Amino acid sequence: MDQRISFVTLAVSDLDATRAFYLDGLGWVAALDVPGEVLMVQVGEHVVLSFWHEAGFEAEVGPIRRGPGLAPVTLAHNVATRAEVDAVLELARRAGADPVTDPVERDWGGVTGYFADPDGYHWEVAVNPGPIGQVVLP
């Protein structure tokens, strides 16, 4: 098996709110948009982020675990500078992200802040000055 990810699929409770947040708020472009079912966004040369309405997700994949707390996953958007971290977090704020945490300088030398989309999926916006951080920058 090749060492790669082709799709990341997230179950969402309100596909219209997800569409408004990512397309209208963040300015992303849909690669595939089937109202009431799925929204797909190409996020890398060979990577698609798929937002699947939870009813369809559960029908195919199985029951979603529900309860208090955060989903045990984060998504990350790495950038080259602290100013870009600030700009992305501000864009997320204007798009309606809640919560949004201010950037923090981390012990490992980077800077990170977080925002949550309408379903509570948390995105890390980060500058990672190490070699692995350079691997993910365009």
Score class of each variant (00 low, 15 high):
residue 83 A to L: 06
residue 43 V to K: 05
residue 30 A to F: 07
residue 105 E to D: 12
residue 29 V to Q: 03
residue 26 L to K: 07
residue 74 T to Q: 09
residue 16 D to Q: 05
residue 64 I to D: 00
residue 102 D to G: 14
residue 16 D to E: 05
residue 132 I to D: 08
residue 47 V to W: 04
residue 91 L to A: 02
residue 57 F to Q: 04
residue 99 P to K: 14
residue 14 D to S: 03
residue 26 L to S: 02
residue 104 V to C: 10
residue 81 T to Y: 04
residue 24 D to I: 04
residue 55 A to S: 10
residue 113 G to S: 11
residue 39 L to S: 09
residue 55 A to F: 00
residue 25 G to H: 04
residue 89 L to H: 08
residue 136 V to S: 03
residue 14 D to A: 06
residue 30 A to I: 11
residue 69 G to I: 12
residue 22 Y to H: 06
residue 118 P to V: 13
residue 69 G to H: 07
residue 93 R to A: 10
residue 10 L to V: 06
residue 26 L to V: 08
residue 30 A to N: 06
residue 111 V to S: 10
residue 52 W to L: 12
residue 114 Y to C: 13
residue 43 V to T: 13
residue 115 F to G: 02
residue 70 L to K: 12
residue 4 R to C: 15
residue 9 T to Q: 02
residue 132 I to A: 11
residue 58 E to I: 01
residue 13 S to A: 03
residue 25 G to A: 04
residue 23 L to I: 14
residue 69 G to N: 13
residue 26 L to T: 02
residue 41 V to A: 13
residue 116 A to M: 10
residue 83 A to K: 08
residue 102 D to I: 13
residue 84 E to R: 01
residue 24 D to Q: 06
residue 11 A to L: 03
residue 137 L to Q: 10
residue 62 G to F: 00
residue 125 V to M: 02
residue 40 M to E: 14
residue 130 G to L: 05
residue 5 I to Q: 08
residue 117 D to P: 09
residue 137 L to T: 13
residue 13 S to H: 08
residue 128 N to H: 14
residue 96 G to K: 00
residue 43 V to L: 01
residue 119 D to K: 02
residue 63 P to A: 01
residue 40 M to D: 07
residue 10 L to K: 04
residue 25 G to R: 01
residue 42 Q to R: 15
residue 2 D to V: 15
residue 29 V to A: 10
residue 48 V to W: 07
residue 51 F to W: 05
residue 50 S to A: 15
residue 63 P to F: 00
residue 39 L to N: 11
residue 31 A to F: 06
residue 2 D to S: 15
residue 115 F to C: 07
residue 56 G to W: 02
residue 20 A to Y: 01
residue 114 Y to G: 12
residue 94 R to D: 00
residue 64 I to P: 06
residue 42 Q to G: 12
residue 3 Q to G: 14
residue 41 V to S: 13
residue 37 E to N: 10
residue 17 A to I: 02
residue 137 L to R: 13
residue 87 A to G: 00
residue 86 D to C: 13
residue 55 A to C: 04
residue 138 P to W: 11
residue 73 V to T: 14
residue 36 G to M: 05
residue 4 R to Y: 15
residue 85 V to I: 05
residue 22 Y to S: 09
residue 72 P to H: 12
residue 106 R to S: 07
residue 69 G to T: 13
residue 87 A to H: 00
residue 132 I to E: 05
residue 124 E to D: 10
residue 66 R to A: 09
residue 138 P to S: 15
residue 106 R to Y: 02
residue 69 G to R: 06
residue 47 V to E: 09
residue 48 V to G: 08
residue 15 L to K: 06
residue 11 A to T: 05
residue 84 E to Q: 02
residue 56 G to F: 05
residue 53 H to E: 03
residue 130 G to H: 11
residue 59 A to C: 05
residue 18 T to K: 06
residue 117 D to S: 08
residue 94 R to K: 06
residue 99 P to G: 13
residue 32 L to E: 09
residue 65 R to F: 00
residue 103 P to D: 08
residue 46 H to N: 14
residue 90 E to A: 15
residue 74 T to Y: 09
residue 14 D to V: 03
residue 137 L to A: 13
residue 12 V to E: 01
residue 37 E to C: 11
residue 24 D to E: 08
residue 114 Y to S: 11
residue 69 G to D: 13
residue 106 R to L: 15
residue 110 G to H: 09
residue 138 P to M: 11
residue 9 T to P: 02
residue 82 R to N: 07
residue 118 P to E: 12
residue 99 P to R: 13
residue 109 G to E: 04
residue 60 E to I: 12
residue 77 H to R: 03
residue 90 E to N: 12
residue 134 Q to E: 03
residue 12 V to Q: 01
